[in-house]
């Protein structure tokens, strides 16, 4: 997903992450290229094992051993891959912040949240003690935690799941980041709380002009939040476009299957358009297109040759030899 972008923003080219396991070598992220413009929210969608979360971590080189990351990540004109670990630490948590699915494990259980917010402030700002206290309170108010003054001195376990996610966001915001990497931040939450957090992220984007790279498996979350989206399957991006374009006219059979798997209004108690089988293991990926064993459109070419991700319209890319047929089918249906 590459759009021309004058300065700023995130530019990822050929990002590849491999793990060598006792059972073989797994390419978890396989040559991902994508851009996130300033103030843009990009959704990275896929099912479990698609490599979407590792992609997110690879961008800031937060992949644990034995993972190996290669490729190019350009952030505001600087190459994060070539940066020293010390310089990268100044970017991470400062210009680029992360939030995770399970905030309880990302927060330190034995420290009150005030300390955890102020810790990030002292690491990435020049504020003095007094100003940090003031700023911590402001941040708690920004993320919508009621009775912020009192709650600052509470510990993570005293917060509900939704409130913990707000605390995580407050910590992330402490350094006024320009890019937020969000890894399924609402998956563990109830739907009314998820709704609140999604709206909060949208507000923060507007207010601070932040870019967001939003990893999720939930197409509804993408529809409600993102500007553009990239669909991942077996470590690769298979389709990109604006959210409106992809939802209206999916060109990859996997995207089409995913959209069809979600029940739609007006088609109650009918058969869903499911995708047969299960996602492949990353160690023994099928030859050719990784999706071909589950694909109704697959031909001999798909079994032999891997389709590259190619641009077919303005802002649209797909990795499928038969994407015109797929799109026409969707049209007819």
């Amino acid at each position: 997903m590459t759009v021309p972008m004058p300065g700023g923003g995130l530019k990822v080219r050929g990002l590849t992450t491999t793990f060598v396991t006792p059972r073989g070598r797994a390419t978890v992220v396989d040559g991902i290229s994508l851009d996130v413009a300033p103030g843009e929210i990009v959704g990275l969608v896929g099912e479990s094992g698609s490599g979407k979360s590792i992609t997110l971590r690879s961008i800031v080189r937060l992949v644990r051993e034995p993972g190996k990351v290669s490729g190019q990540v350009e952030w505001q004109g600087r190459d994060l891959m070539a940066m020293s670990e010390a310089d990268l630490r100044k970017v991470r948590g400062a210009e680029i912040a992360m939030i995770f699915q399970e905030p309880m494990t990302a927060l330190n259980p034995v420290l009150p949240v005030r300390l955890q917010i102020e810790e990030n402030l002292s690491a990435h700002t020049t504020l003095d003690r007094r100003a940090r206290r003031q700023r911590a309170l402001e941040l708690m108010n920004i993320v919508g935690i009621p009775a912020a003054e009192r709650r600052l001195d509470e510990y993570p376990h005293q917060f509900s799941g939704g409130m913990r996610q707000r605390v995580m966001i407050a910590i992330a915001l402490a350094s006024s980041p320009k890019l937020l990497l969000a890894d399924e931040p609402t998956t563990a939450l109830d739907v009314t709380i998820q709704d609140q957090i999604l709206k909060l992220i949208l507000d923060l984007r507007d207010r601070f002009g932040m870019s967001v790279l939003f990893v999720t498996h939930d197409l509804g979350v993408v529809a409600a939040t993102c500007d553009r989206m990239a669909v991942m399957y077996a470590g690769r991006i298979v389709e990109t476009g604006t959210v409106a374009q992809v939802f209206a006219e999916p060109h990859h059979p996997y995207t089409r299957g995913l959209l069809g798997s979600v029940p739609r209004i007006g088609a109650e108690r009918s058969m869903l358009l499911s995708i047969e089988g299960a996602p492949p293991g990353l160690i023994d990926l099928p030859e050719g297109c990784a999706f071909h064993p589950r694909c109704a459109f697959a031909t001999d070419r798909c079994r032999a040759e891997r389709p590259p991700l190619e641009r077919f319209a303005a802002g649209r890319e797909v990795a499928c030899f038969h994407h015109r047929t797929v799109a026409a089918m969707a049209e007819a249906a």
Binding site: G257, M271, L272, L273, S274, E276, C295, A296, F297
Partner: peptide, 9 residues
């Protein structure tokens, strides 16, 4: 892709 008649190996 079908409505679910294929058996899974």
């Amino acid at each position: 892709m079908s409505t679910g008649t294929v058996q899974i190996a």
